[in-house]
Design a protein around this nucleic acid. Structure first.
Lengths: 158, 158
DNA sequence: TAAGATTGAACTATCAATCTTG
DNA sequence: CAAGATTGATAGTTCAATCTTA
């Protein structure tokens, strides 16, 4: 297509463009569904999921950012907005006075508990119900491989 | 359509979270790489790719938005910014005076031709070089299936 | 000085409203 | 009125700078 450029072969190109489309459309679809019956965005949901994962619903800011793979500043801004809505709170850290916790509030817990069932149904309908066991296996390997490559790419040879 | 509050099973949950991470990190990695040796964002690149796909590098706004699966207003804003940088131009449509074309400029063509080789190398390194032929096949099926489900989900009133 | 975290400015995306022409 | 497209306001993201404490 573009002269002099080593592009992908035709098959790879089709797959690649479709993947890019999925990456655009799947989050958009999940967001729409989530907001249809809750006041949570997909990002809110992801934050709340990580907090419900751990005892007491408390995580250090850096740990939460690490789990989400978000930049700390993005998380900080997001937490500010969620705090304003009463979904989470900030708490000082006694062990290390520089640090801070993000803590799930009761309202946050209630919000995710009410939103989760419908959200899971959408994830099942759009993804897991449509895939065979082999395809889920393949997806597991593919995502693992790609994540490893990205990580490796970021840490050039020591 | 499973009722109740069932979450995903353990395996599905692992796969699902990893997929969400890929969806965050892969675009970020591509963006970083792209900006390292060009002045294009991934979004700029995607717009330019679609325009180089077609003769004369011209597309109606709606067709381009459709190809990218972007909202028209997002595309309109983006085109304004790219136009300011000289990468594309707008052109009136003679057949339908409501319509408009987005047209690749020479500078836009040069920009993508210079950026493409390195970008493709990154896509290969992070994705295709790491996957077996079977995995690429699986990825093709998976993305197709999920896109179909999303499309189906959007069709109003069953 | 470096690590943990927040802030502000600039950039990008989304939603609703608008303008023009079919 | 509906379709094609743009605009403006608002929300969210990124980057660099900042503040505080280890």
């Amino acid at each position: 297509v573009t002269p002099g450029t080593a592009w992908l072969d035709e098959r790879q190109q089709r797959v690649w463009r479709r993947w890019l489309l999925v990456q655009n459309q799947l989050p958009a679809a999940l967001n729409r569904a989530l907001q249809a019956d809750s006041d949570l965005s997909l990002q809110d949901f992801e934050v709340l999921v990580r907090l419900t994962d751990v005892p007491q619903g408390r995580l250090r800011v850096t740990e939460l950012a690490e789990a989400l793979q978000w930049e700390r500043s993005r998380l900080s801004h997001h937490v500010t907005r969620m705090q304003r809505r009463g979904l989470v709170e900030r708490e000082e850290c006694r062990d290390d006075a520089r640090g801070a916790f993000v803590v799930l509030t009761q309202a946050g817990r209630t919000a995710i508990e009410q939103a989760a069932p419908a959200h899971v149904r959408v994830v099942r309908r759009l993804v897991f119900d449509a895939l065979s066991a082999d395809e889920v296996d393949a997806l597991a390997r593919i995502t693992e491989t790609v994540l490893a490559r990205i990580a490796q790419d970021e840490r050039p040879q020591a």
